Amino acid sequence: MGRLASIWGEDCMEYRPERWLDDGGVFRPASPFRFTVFHAGPRMCLGKEMAYVQMKSIVANVLEEFVVDVVKDDVAAGGVPEHVLSITLRMKGGLPVKIRRKPEA
C-alpha cells in the first residue's frame, strides 16, 4: 500500500518530501486512514502504557526513601521558581534541588 499509485499518485516511487507541503510550504498531513498498516493513526508502542506504570511506580518508591528540597539560593526572583510557558510547563533555568535520604523512623 505504501507504493500504490492509486493511493499516493503517479510519483509514488519517488522520494519527494514536498508532497506533504501545501502551496505555501506548510506541512499538510495525509489522513491516517489512508494507510491502514498504521491502524488509522500513528504507530504506538504496545508497551507504552506499561512503561508509564513502571515509571510512576519507581518514582513513588524513590520519593518514599528520599526528601527533595528546592535550593532557593539558585532560583531566580528571590527564591521563587519562574515558569516558562510551553507545551510542557517547565522552570526557567531548571529547578535546582538537593536530595537527601529520609531519616530512619
Rank of each mutant, 00 (worst) to 15 (best):
R3N: 11
L4R: 15
L4G: 08
A5S: 13
I7W: 02
W8A: 10
W8T: 06
G9A: 13
E10Q: 13
C12E: 06
C12I: 04
E14K: 15
Y15S: 02
R16A: 06
R16V: 13
P17L: 15
E18H: 06
R19M: 00
W20F: 14
D22A: 08
D22M: 04
D22S: 06
D22V: 08
D23M: 01
G24P: 01
G24H: 14
G25R: 07
R28N: 10
P29Q: 11
A30Q: 07
A30G: 00
A30N: 08
P32D: 15
P32F: 09
R34Q: 10
F35S: 04
T36M: 14
F38P: 01
F38V: 06
H39R: 09
H39Y: 02
H39D: 04
A40Q: 13
G41K: 08
G41T: 09
G41H: 14
P42R: 14
P42V: 08
P42A: 02
P42G: 11
L46I: 14
L46N: 06
L46S: 10
L46E: 12
G47F: 02
K48F: 12
E49I: 07
E49P: 00
E49N: 12
M50E: 08
Y52T: 12
V53T: 04
V53P: 01
V53N: 03
V53C: 04
V53S: 04
Q54F: 00
Q54C: 03
Q54T: 05
M55W: 05
M55V: 05
M55C: 10
M55F: 14
K56Y: 07
S57I: 12
S57F: 10
I58P: 09
I58T: 14
V59P: 02
V59D: 01
A60S: 05
N61C: 09
V62Q: 07
V62K: 07
L63H: 02
L63P: 02
L63V: 04
E64D: 02
E65D: 14
E65S: 14
E65Y: 11
V67A: 09
V67M: 13
V68Q: 01
D69E: 15
V70G: 03
V70I: 15
V71H: 01
K72E: 09
D73S: 15
D74L: 07
D74R: 13
V75L: 01
G78S: 01
G79Q: 03
V80A: 04
V80S: 06
V80R: 15
V80L: 10
P81Y: 03
E82K: 15
H83D: 05
H83Y: 05
V84G: 06
V84A: 11
V84L: 08
L85A: 11
I87C: 00
I87N: 05
T88Y: 11
L89I: 08
L89V: 10
R90H: 15
M91W: 02
M91Y: 08
M91T: 07
M91H: 13
K92N: 04
K92D: 05
G93V: 05
G94E: 05
L95P: 05
L95E: 11
L95F: 03
P96E: 00
P96G: 01
P96Y: 00
P96A: 02
K98A: 01
K98W: 06
K98I: 00
R100F: 01
R100E: 08
R100T: 11
R101E: 11
K102M: 09
K102Y: 12
P103D: 07
E104R: 12
